[in-house]
């Protein structure tokens, strides 16, 4: 897999770390306990393309939002948060 970092250009997979699904957002004030459980633990994990957080750990330290197909590994977009 190669990821086109908006700052560094296309780089190999080994420079990046994936952490989590980017479709979940951190609950704000007034959130319920269930909101927090959903945020921290529950994932859709479908077969469809999805947004996810990647970190250019061995590069510029930017956090990126990839739109990526989890079946073909095709990367449709690389955005900044």
């Amino acid at each position: 897999m190669r990821i086109a970092c908006p700052y560094c250009g296309p780089r190999g997979l080994e420079e990046f770390l994936y952490t989590q699904d980017a479709s979940v957002t951190r609950p704000g004030a007034g959130a319920t306990g269930q909101d927090w459980v959903d945020y921290v633990y529950i994932r859709e994990n479908t077969k469809a393309p999805r947004k996810e957080f990647w970190y250019h750990s061995a590069g510029c330290h930017a956090w990126l939002i990839l739109t990526r197909d989890v079946v073909t590994h095709e990367i449709m977009a690389v955005d900044l948060p």
Binding site: L17, T19, R26, F53, Y55, H61, A62, W63
Partner: peptide, 17 residues
């Protein structure tokens, strides 16, 4: 050290940008 750096970057770039 590296894990905390990554975590802080996440907080600064994503959660509290």
């Amino acid at each position: 050290a590296a894990k905390v750096m990554q975590h802080l970057e996440f907080c600064a770039q994503v959660l509290w940008k």
